[in-house]
Design a protein around this nucleic acid. Sequence first.
DNA 1: TTCATAGTTCGATGCTAGCCAAAGTATGCA
DNA 2: TGCATACTTTGGCTAGCATCGAACTATGAA
Lengths: 233, 233
Amino acid sequence: MKAGTDLAQIASLVGDPARANMLAALMGGTALTASELAMEAGVTLPTASAHLARLSDGGLLRMTRQGRHRYYALADHQVAAMLESIMGVAAALGPQKVLPGPRDTAMREARICYDHLAGEAGVAMFDAFAERGFIAIDGDDVNLTDKGAGFFSDFGLDIEAMRGKRRPVCRSCLDWSVRRSHLAGSLGAGVLDRFIALKWARREKNSRVIRFTPPGRAAFERMLRADEGRTGA
Amino acid sequence: MKAGTDLAQIASLVGDPARANMLAALMGGTALTASELAMEAGVTLPTASAHLARLSDGGLLRMTRQGRHRYYALADHQVAAMLESIMGVAAALGPQKVLPGPRDTAMREARICYDHLAGEAGVAMFDAFAERGFIAIDGDDVNLTDKGAGFFSDFGLDIEAMRGKRRPVCRSCLDWSVRRSHLAGSLGAGVLDRFIALKWARREKNSRVIRFTPPGRAAFERMLRADEGRTGA
DNA sequence: TTCATAGTTCGATGCTAGCCAAAGTATGCA
DNA sequence: TGCATACTTTGGCTAGCATCGAACTATGAA
């Protein structure tokens, strides 16, 4: 009875098309202004403003003011994970959608999930890091190993800084398209940042799609495969 | 844009208090009749009937007719997992609720999640099975080992029958109270069934709470600890 | 057949909530 | 100070939908 009320409260926030479009846009991980979100949802500014107020009050969004702009972002990765799980259900029982176009295929291959890499590439990377002993998986907990700390430091990440933060370094996040885990947490975010900084990949404009450059793809594959040959899964 | 529409469609189904209460009741795993669900949601039969039709059309429920009864149940474990994740968000940012009463404490300790054991006991069991080498965890995939197959057969489960079904034998499911994985899949369901058959535990009336009997608790602990002493986590 | 139970369908009602236009507030810039 | 941009608030309109009572269908039992 009480459980249902809580459930409905959160779900009804997501259950409006305008708000859902805003949330989906924010799954891209970058904070957006009220106007941008209004555009994204296809409503006028006043309407968007009201929706954003409700989402913020409900605890799904976090807002930071910057001059006369107000930037909205998802409150935390738990909210992002929830949205992914709903999308998962929608994708699973929504064969009523048109056949997957090129955009969908690209999303399946590699996309940004909040702030880290998801899709086939994300899952492959997660598996490879586990295989190479960089991360240790214990149930739903994922931990960075000493070997991994060395590797990612060499790769250009500031592991010590990550450890100082409140946010967990490693976290697994369920992938809706592949239905397996990929790497989230500050490490997951850092790795993707680095990919983009190194120009291995870039974000497609106004979409969650991540596109690898040809040399980036090769470097990425090398990173997964390591120097030793091993049997594929 | 399209993503948001799908998202909203599913979420709005959950976003009505009456429907949410029905879904929460069905998280207990047992199929319920339309009348029972109407009672649970606090609405009249016609209203409940309309809601159930929408949930079924939306793909969240599965209905089976039995004489003049119609039994409704969650469509699959993916739907159950989605509901758990929404409850997780609600629990995390809902400190507006009254302080956790005895019912809540019991829910945290051991409860039924769709058809398998969740809560602290569920997470402890998952970890112990992994520790004892009965299940092998590979990313989000969980697989039964030969050693595990032997153990669970001795425990009274028909492993061969489970393997024949469409449903995966092992699956991990994220626990909203402990935020770690517990064991789902037909094995998870089978183990809980066995606990109840052996009178190690019983379901509390009209609730998701699982109560261990004193001897059952002892037997359960013994099952986790195995015969060898080991360092606790 | 007749009655009872379980559930759906129909019609009417009332409330909620989304929507926009216009006016109001706040910040930045010249 | 004055103007522009970014966003919120207010007010009024509308549509959708949750709700219930009453009538209808279907299964089971006497």
